[in-house]
Design a protein around this nucleic acid. Structure first.
Lengths: 218, 218
DNA sequence: GCAAAAGTGTTGACTTTACACCCATGC
DNA sequence: GCATGGGTGTAAAGTCAACACTTTTGC
């Protein structure tokens, strides 16, 4: 379809968060970036994304670029914001509809790194193309804010997890220690998690219970 | 500028909230709608808005349609969501970037009603064009949610107001009574309001203090 | 037994809610 | 004086944060 007098073209980009153990074993919040292969900003890192396909839903487009970039399925996906400043892109005007997503860190989808895809610590990204640095900052703010009042942390983990693992997710993202006892009680009271009855074996200490997320919870 | 292979065209719409006294003197939450004069959905009511102008910022576009529809300036304006389902509009695909806004009810901008612009109670709108009924519902949810943790209620009022007026705004939108004493203390503690020193005269009872919003507050 | 992490109990500080009561004005 | 809403006081209930303590495992 050809249309005249279009006001702008539409792109969909996604800020993809995961947690991966760094060299010293500590979890680190990371996002994948892709290297641009054409102008403008050729050679610079940018958020994964691309033009909106004619018959594709916005969220489906975000989901697809996520899959193409990481080989993974999103555990959580939400629209972040539409960025449309006329000056944000040199040349043709582009309105970017940006999503943010969580993927599990255990799935080793990051083996998919290539010459043009790499993972960076979320609060230490290089200078990016367009206004993408500001977008990453905003997504990071939204992730931290939402984690405080919502129940999305399990999106970083597998189907079952211990409370210590879930607590570490909170601690890494919110960058502050959390009292284990209070954390347990708060979560149990919220009924966001259900004990599976299974326990982790082979720890050097008392074996912790495995939990799963309660899909039926409000 | 002409571009081939565009994925969709972009429109900006706005859900504009105001409070107006109804026939029996009770405040009512209202939004303006415009009658469509062309297909699709010709003759039906729809949210005010239009195509994005080539060099216009998204928020500026929302602000402009608000002004054209109501003759007023927004007291509060925020992006709501980008709606982009491929099936949401018959014919050409349209991605709508929707804003929501508050305007003061005292300014009588509603005198600007014409054949093609009318105000409706926010929770009693007629069947609308496109997916606009769902959009209004979402905006209403967002307004109520945001009012609970943010300080935007003064956007419905003039530069100065009594605590009773501000409390009525909360009561009408949240649809529940609020304790006057606790309301006063909560607001004073938050330092969101500043007493002007002036009082309203001519009431049948003790004259209330006038306050204004504290722009310096966090 | 000892170390380490799981899991429980308890207390004080703080916040929220309900409601009693006094104050200032018009009539 | 009396009615009305403005404005203040206060105590009970609930929530939250700190931290001591008990339990269960591997070595």
């Amino acid at each position: 379809m050809t249309t005249d007098n279009v006001s702008a073209s539409i792109a969909v980009s996604t800020v993809i968060f995961t947690l991966t153990p760094s060299a010293d074993g500590v979890l680190e919040l990371c996002i994948p970036l892709v290297r641009r292969i054409r102008e403008p900003y050729a050679g610079m890192w940018a958020l994964p994304g691309g033009p909106l396909s004619p018959s594709e839903d916005l969220a489906a487009s975000a989901s697809r670029t996520l899959r193409e970039t990481t080989g993974l399925e999103p555990r959580y996906l939400e629209q972040l914001y539409a960025f449309g400043d006329p000056e944000r892109s040199p040349g043709e005007r582009v309105v970017s509809i940006v999503y943010w997503a969580l993927v599990g860190g255990d799935e080793a989808g990051q083996a998919l790194t290539s010459e043009n895809v790499a993972w960076f610590a979320a609060d230490d990204v290089p200078p990016l193309a367009f206004d993408h640095n500001a977008i990453v900052e905003y997504a990071l703010w939204r992730l931290r804010t939402k984690l405080e009042y919502s129940r999305i942390a399990h999106g970083f983990l597998g189907p079952t997890f211990t409370l210590a693992q879930l607590r570490e997710v909170y601690e890494v993202i919110l960058q502050k220690p959390i009292d284990p006892g209070n954390f347990r009680r708060t979560l149990e009271a919220s009924r966001a998690i259900v004990p599976t009855g299974e326990r982790v074996k082979g720890t050097r200490h008392r074996p912790p219970q495995l939990y799963r997320y309660n899909e039926e919870s409000a």
